[in-house]
Design a protein around this nucleic acid. Structure first.
Lengths: 339, 339
DNA sequence: TTGTACGCGTTATCAT
DNA sequence: ATGATAACGCGTACAA
């Protein structure tokens, strides 16, 4: 029992010669007290090193001043940016962020949500809208405001981007450069609506241009640099080798560049490569990576704004679509004549 | 008040026709109940969708089954690895991880610790041992077990690596290759004992070899890829340009490689570059980065093991030093004869 | 302006 | 094996 070293309201009340209610007010509604009383209480509190107990406060008030966020993984530059900003914004508002991750496992997400809910969060933030009904049931039955990030179902608030459009943007960029043999490395599509939307966007742009996406030109890999390398090497083995390659996230695209480099394939001369996310590193690899800017930081701040609003009054908030844009760099170019 | 949709012990007790004590036992010590009673309670609980309230449980028991960790930033691959593993290990033990970050600001760290403590954490994890006395006072007065990661003061438990040795390793590697003009790009040294230790290690190795580290050969930059680029460009402007360059973290070293590449300086032919951390990306940049492996994941798991042990019995645990090793890749070579 | 007293949902200590 | 009931530390009507 670590507890009981810390002093409580009762201790301070005793020391200041007032009731615990007065001390409680001194902490939350100072203006309700007479100046001298307030001073006396504060002095006593300071002397005893009193610190309010958040747990008791939560139990009594029903508000924990805490919002929970469940993300697929901590190990992603894009999520890290968003989290960082969420933490900042929430902190500024006197809230605490509770993070849980689940490694792209639906059961793990359910467990994480359950745990967070039990911890008495005031608001919940999820990534994407695709999850088992059981999980949705759980959060709905808890009566806690939810906001989805990146993309999500229409029956709950969402702050995100048009992932479908992001896919179209990269694909069209490559098409405009003259590519016709365009291959795609995605993350696992199962349980990942962001990936699916991006891929669909790519598909739409290609078919619109009368370009096919053969099954052999599509490979699902881990959302990591090694994943990108593996995917790239598979595509490079093809008899009818593509002239361009889309990674549905930058880390995959960066892996693809690495693999080409390792095999002595010139980028973009022999192979154009583009990604989506525009993570910081994209500008610094060589060649620098053409990508689609996803405003991760802003997703974080807007999301926080949303949850806090929902916590304040349970007004239904709608969907917010943040702008995205193509960032052309040096990893993409016209298809080589050689072939 | 979102609360009060969820059913409580009382509700279940009522529904099952038993006392709340019995329900409580059904949840925590099922073996104490008669089989049929247990069954009845469980049925009622399931029917009402009962979920124990962690907050109330914490208040009553004095244990929150939660450990807090305060890190400099979420935006670092090395910390991300550690956090990921901590989350995994803690989850397996039925604990929840509470993360806070402070962007390398001591005041921010104090605030974060204060907040975490108020939230009733059972254990606290910090990075490094260098912080204002006020912060140490705070955690000590809270009576919560603490373990430091990476490195730390001797009066508290610590799971880390020998950062000094890490610095020595890279420096010696470069010295062994024949370099004599070795420059260093570190992160900000203030409030960062890991960086200081690494730099001191480098200094020690250099002076041992009779090689000087002129002030001009040392630059403090942000712990990021752009930071590495800036640092590198400064060092490249020098009249007496170094032949090798150490980034005290891999992201900085990777930035340096990017800068050399942008300027058409061949690595390692014209400039050798090495880092510390051995993040995943190090193996995939080109040229691949020579680095010192820091077992980030293992730091996470061992740290968790330690806090949990300390929480179980307040026995003082000592310092654990995890092994590190040099990983030679292709960003380092013998100094060019040209000059 | 300040004090009293009850409730928040559990755990834990006594009884029974 | 099960039931009362007092904490836990705080918020907050309601009284004074």
């Amino acid at each position: 029992m670590a507890r009981r070293q810390r002093s409580s309201l009762t201790d301070v009340a005793h020391a200041a010669g007032v009731s615990i209610a007065t001390v409680s007010r001194a902490m939350s509604q100072p203006e309700m007290l007479r100046a001298d009383t307030l001073e006396r209480v504060r002095a006593a509190a300071a002397r005893l090193g009193y610190r309010p107990d958040h747990v008791a406060r939560t139990l009594a008030s029903g508000k924990s001043h805490t919002v929970g966020v469940v993300i697929p993984t901590l190990n992603s530059p894009i999520f890290a940016d968003t989290l960082q900003e969420m933490q900042r914004s929430l902190d500024a508002a006197g809230y605490q962020l509770l993070v849980a991750s689940h490694e792209y496992d639906p059961a793990g997400e359910f467990a994480a949500v359950d745990k967070l809910l039990a911890h008495g969060i005031d608001g919940l933030v999820l990534v994407g809208g695709s999850r088992p009904e059981a999980t949705w049931k759980l959060v709905e039955s808890a009566g806690v405001p939810v906001v989805q990030m990146w993309c999500g179902r229409s029956d709950h608030a969402c702050v995100g981007v048009d992932n479908h459009a992001a896919g179209e943007l990269v694909a069209r960029h490559l098409l405009a450069l003259g590519h016709r043999r365009i291959a795609v490395i995605t993350g696992r599509l199962r349980h990942n609506d962001r990936q699916r939307a991006r891929l669909e966007g790519i598909r739409a742009a290609l078919s619109e241009a009368g370009v096919a996406l053969p099954a052999a030109y599509l490979t699902e890999q881990a959302l990591s640099v090694p994943g990108g390398r593996v995917g790239c090497s598979i595509l490079l083995e093809l008899a009818d080798r593509p002239t361009a390659l889309i990674g549905t996230v930058d880390v995959i695209a960066i892996g693809a560049i690495a693999e080409c480099h390792a095999r002595g394939i010139a980028v973009p001369e022999e192979m154009s490569i583009a990604g989506i996310d525009n993570i910081e590193l994209a500008a610094h690899v060589s060649p620098s990576l053409s990508s689609v800017e996803i405003p991760a930081t802003r997703i974080g701040s807007e999301t926080v704004e949303r949850v806090l609003a929902l916590i304040a009054d349970m007004t239904k908030a709608g969907h917010v679509m943040l702008p995205i844009e193509l960032v052309e760099r040096h990893s993409t170019g016209r298809p080589g004549e050689t072939r």
